[in-house]
Amino acid sequence: MSKPDYPVRTGRLALRPFTFADHAALHSWQSRADVNRHLYHEARTPEETAESLVKKVSLTWPEREGDVLSLAIEKDGEVIGEAVLKYLSEYHRQGEVGYILHPDHHGRGYATEAAVAVLGLGFDHLGLHRIVASCDAFNEPSWRVMERLGMRREAHFRHNEIFKGAWGEEFVYAILAEEWHRMADSRPGANGA
């Protein structure tokens, strides 16, 4: 297990730990109902965003089971979203990846590019064996990212919980370290693509 040097750079992005100076950027999407539509929380107040930022700033690398690493996604010096790596199980070497972008930056491949970097951190730096991702089954842009990453849909949970007042559905995707490394030359962003 080796902590990476920050920022982690991709073709167009830089991923780095959040700082308290990122409050306005973070609040720019955490305060939006359209962004939170598929998330477990509602649009946040500035104070609630500040509370979530404290958690993000406090962890710069997941060292133990249960740790959640949130990295700011920068494009040309502007924070446009976040990428998340959850350390689910140390013994089973399992993790979970996630991503949120401000809607002004949707549709340009940034979520995929950031997620490629985070999957690399999970497999190459944290030594994970399997990484999952999940989303609301009705959040097609999110599950399309998972498919572009080479993740396979392993589950479709129908009516698995009451989500924001109605029965929710969830897709679960996963990829193994051996699959990730095998597709190194064909994944999005490989070889400058």
Results as ranks from 00 to 15, higher is better:
Y87C: 03
L59R: 09
V68R: 08
S70Y: 12
K164P: 00
V97C: 06
P4H: 03
R144F: 06
M183E: 15
Y40P: 09
E154T: 00
Y173A: 09
R12Q: 01
E169W: 08
P103E: 13
G95I: 04
N36W: 05
W143R: 01
E169C: 12
R16I: 04
G81V: 00
L59G: 05
Y110D: 12
G122F: 01
R153G: 01
H129C: 10
A21W: 05
K56E: 06
R130M: 03
R158W: 04
E90H: 13
P62D: 11
A114M: 15
P103S: 12
Q94C: 12
M1V: 07
P46E: 00
A111E: 14
A166L: 13
H38V: 07
P46S: 10
T49W: 09
F20H: 15
G165I: 05
Y91T: 02
H38D: 13
D104A: 14
L53C: 08
E63A: 13
D5P: 00
L128P: 04
T60G: 08
V84C: 08
G165F: 08
P46L: 04
E178I: 07
P103W: 09
V79I: 09
A14F: 11
N160Y: 05
R152K: 13
E90C: 05
P103C: 10
E169T: 07
R148S: 08
A33L: 12
D34V: 10
A177P: 00
I131R: 03
V84T: 15
A24G: 11
I73Q: 02
R16M: 00
A114Q: 13
Y87Q: 00
A166S: 12
N36M: 15
I131E: 03
E169D: 15
T60H: 07
H102D: 15
D67M: 06
K3V: 09
G98T: 11
A33F: 10
G120Q: 11
G165E: 06
A117E: 07
V84G: 03
F163T: 06
A177W: 01
A133W: 01
V84D: 09
V172A: 06
M146T: 00
D5K: 04
D76W: 04
Y99I: 15
S58H: 11
D104C: 08
C135S: 14
R130H: 05
V118I: 09
R148G: 03
D185V: 15
K75G: 00
Y6W: 02
S2N: 12
I73C: 06
H23Y: 11
K56C: 13
D5C: 07
A111W: 10
E51V: 06
R37N: 11
N36V: 10
V118G: 01
G95M: 12
G192L: 15
P62G: 03
L85N: 01
P17D: 14
N139Y: 14
M146R: 09
H125L: 07
Y40F: 10
K86R: 12
K3Y: 07
A14S: 14
C135R: 02
P17F: 14
R16Q: 01
F138N: 13
L71V: 11
S142E: 01
S70A: 15
F163N: 00
A184T: 05
P103N: 14
R152C: 06
L149G: 02
Y87I: 01
A14E: 11
P141G: 02
S31L: 08
H105C: 14
A133R: 00
G95E: 12
F171M: 07
A111Q: 07
D22F: 03
G120E: 11
S70D: 10
L119E: 08
R93V: 01
L119Y: 02
R9S: 10
A24K: 08
